[in-house]
């Protein structure tokens, strides 16, 4: 690890001010990803701003019927919170499908959004990587790319976002609340993470010095008909090859509203409103589900080792939709 300065912020304003005053200052909360990146010398902040003492640990009901989760609430606390378990089981399932209990105990809600890709080349400082060293190249395109993106990638980067939690938040259409030097603002979840384009070094649309303060869930949690299906190499404690978050609102046996997001396939949780539109107003049916799976991968491109993900998405989407109609993963 590099040598760095340490500031413990006592309020949000102080944290944002400290970040604005340090060229390479970074916020730290759970540290499960950042400390690891620092050990690998992928990250080398000049100063860490410890935000763990900030008052961002509340889970509270919102006037519009939604639920607000403070940025410092741990992944474990979110997954087992009674309101989340009963009203947003999709979010609870997705969190429990990721990492290990120890990591979930440490990792924060805000930090989960900001974790970096686990692309092997990003993590190997001896090799080029456009995300780590812009302009140096992308060895993954012609390299070992079994875990890489099939949707929304660019010639500059084929990394995937590693989070499970974020796939559920995308399907739930959450809102991310941030505070920065220019004040507070809210970012729709679909706009929070970005595709790599020609600037893969930027994972999100956060501006310099902005701090995530909370994630807000809308009232509709699709509790009766949702599922998080994760396909991976091990049954536990492995990143998704492909994951599918589904939330359905069923009205008299017909799909009234559908939400669907994919993980493990793109630089951000992949949500495609045109696929959701195919489901709206329809009776659940395997042929319809297969058509939705086909539609989702219409522009998918493999790089060789990850070609299998295209067929895997088609099949996982069908199974996830079947599970959601039946009422959840174990129904």
């Amino acid at each position: 690890m590099n040598r760095f300065g340490y500031t413990r912020a006592s309020d949000v304003g102080e944290a944002v001010h400290a970040a604005a005053n340090g060229d390479a200052a970074q916020f730290i909360a759970g540290g499960t990803n950042l400390v690891d990146l620092m050990k690998e010398r992928i990250a080398a902040p000049s100063r860490l701003i410890d935000i763990t003492r900030l008052p961002l640990r509340a889970v509270k009901s919102l006037p519009d019927g939604g639920l607000e989760i403070g940025a410092l609430v741990s992944n474990s606390e979110v997954a087992s919170h009674p309101e989340v378990v009963s009203r947003y089981p999709l979010l609870s399932q997705a969190i429990l499908a990721g990492a290990s209990p120890q990591l979930r105990n440490m990792a924060s809600t805000g930090g989960n959004l900001l974790q970096r890709t686990r692309c092997y080349y990003f993590y190997d400082a001896a090799l080029p990587c456009n995300k780590r060293a812009p302009g140096s190249g992308c060895p993954a395109r012609d390299g070992v790319n079994r875990i890489h993106a099939i949707l929304g990638a660019s010639e500059h980067c084929i990394a995937v976002h590693p989070s499970d939690m974020c796939v559920a938040l995308a399907a739930l259409a959450a809102t991310v609340h941030v505070t920065g030097p220019a004040g507070a603002r809210a970012i729709e979840f679909a706009e929070f993470h970005r595709l790599p384009g020609d600037a893969p070094e930027r994972d999100t649309t956060l501006q310099p010095g902005e701090l995530v303060t909370a994630v807000a869930l809308p009232r509709e949690g699709f509790a009766a008909h949702s599922t998080y299906l994760k396909v991976r190499d091990r049954h536990s404690y492995a990143f998704a090859l492909v994951s599918v978050a589904v939330g359905l609102r069923m009205v008299d046996g017909t799909i009234g509203e559908a939400r669907l997001a994919l993980g493990g396939v793109a630089h951000k949780p992949w949500r495609d409103p045109t696929a959701e539109a195919l489901l709206r107003g329809q009776k659940p049916d395997d042929a319809l589900f297969a058509a939705v799976g086909e539609h989702l991968v219409r522009d998918a491109r493999g790089c060789g080792h990850n070609d299998f993900k295209i067929a895997l998405v088609r099949r996982a989407v069908v199974r996830a939709l079947q599970q959601a109609v039946a009422g959840g993963p174990r129904a």
Partner: peptide
């Protein structure tokens, strides 16, 4: 609470 002490900075556990 169980955590991974290798990923935890001591100063943050004050």
């Amino acid at each position: 609470v169980r955590i991974n002490s290798c990923l935890s900075l001591a100063v943050m556990r004050d």
